[in-house]
């Protein structure tokens, strides 16, 4: 199944986000090898050159490193992965608060509501 892509945003940046998510969630653990450009392009249903561009972007950020003989591996720097994970989590939370504000909930009300929903679920 091809990866789901949003409309109207560059494909390569969506791939970058997707791979980032796979790394921070542990799907590709620190220090492991990534599939080849071609294999991952086929999985995602995207152009191999676009996948290549996404890989280069991830290398620039330090999340991936190229090994001369064995393709690309995920960084072994666990702190870096943790930082990115927290940054993304914060962004998600901010977006959530913004959305709640749009439907008329203050941050405090949102927090209280979130807590009661969380308790109900348990």
């Amino acid at each position: 199944m091809a990866w789901e892509m949003d409309n109207g945003r560059p494909i390569y940046s969506q791939i970058v986000e997707k791979i980032q998510l796979r790394i921070i969630s542990g799907y590709y653990p620190a220090g492991t090898k990534l599939p080849s450009v071609r294999d991952l392009a086929a999985e995602a249903g995207v152009n191999p050159n676009t996948m290549q561009k996404a890989f280069m972007e991830l290398e620039r950020s330090g999340l991936l490193t190229t090994m001369r003989t064995s393709g690309r591996i995920v960084t072994e720097d666990e702190n870096m992965i943790k930082e990115i994970k927290e940054t993304i989590a914060k962004q998600e939370i901010e977006q959530f608060f913004n959305k709640m504000r749009e439907i008329g909930f203050s941050p405090e009300q949102t927090m209280n509501l979130a807590e009661s929903v969380y308790k109900e679920d348990k």
Binding site: N7, G8, R9, P10, I11
Partner: peptide
């Protein structure tokens, strides 16, 4: 390029 169109025009 496809991504240039998406970037410039904000659509598919």
């Amino acid at each position: 390029s496809v991504d240039d169109i998406r970037e410039k025009h904000g659509k598919t």
